[in-house]
């Protein structure tokens, strides 16, 4: 049985993370033209992402408002928040484990950036997306136990 807590905060988080993901998809999602940097979606993420077109995916021929790593983070986080009740039902998620998972994936992302900069490894749109997805989902997984808890079912006899 799943016990939910902090329902208001969960619904706020779900709304905010979904909205961020939709805006991050860029003008293409809203039928905008391909003119780079003149849309409000780019303004929203300007302080958070480099928005380099060469390192970003396009939607409907229009560059997204964030890079491939960031779209992975926002998308996977929103999906992870949406799936929190399901994740809590099927997995017994301990805070200490999810903390280690998140930290490991964060370090993996930094290592990817550093090794790519040095020139030992060349990351791609897809590899950055994958690392972003792992980071976003692990962040959502860490928060899951704060919102939903698995409870032992009461067993009745007779």
């Amino acid at each position: 049985m799943i016990r939910s807590q902090e329902k208001g905060l969960y619904l706020a988080l779900l709304s905010v993370s979904t909205t961020l993901f939709i805006i991050a998809l860029g003008p293409g999602f809203f039928g905008g033209s391909s003119t780079f940097s003149l849309h409000w979606e780019y303004d929203v993420f300007r302080i958070l992402c480099h928005q380099d077109p060469a390192r970003s995916y396009s939607l409907d021929g229009v560059t997204m408002a964030v890079c491939s790593r960031c779209i992975g983070i926002y998308g996977a986080f929103a999906l992870g928040v949406l799936l929190m009740p399901v994740s809590a039902r099927f997995f017994s998620i301990r805070n200490s484990i999810t903390k280690k998972i998140l930290l490991s994936i964060l370090l993996l992302n930094f290592a990817d950036v550093l090794i790519n900069a040095i020139g030992i490894w060349t990351n791609t749109l897809h590899s950055r997306l994958l690392l972003g997805i792992l980071l976003g989902y692990s962040a959502a997984l860490l928060l899951t136990s704060g919102f939903f808890k698995k409870q032992e079912q009461e067993i009745s006899y007779g």
Partner: peptide, 13 residues
């Protein structure tokens, strides 16, 4: 507009 190296990725996050 196409920048490379360490600077671009660190601006994220």
């Amino acid at each position: 507009m196409i920048m490379s190296g360490l600077l671009v990725p660190v601006t994220c996050l």
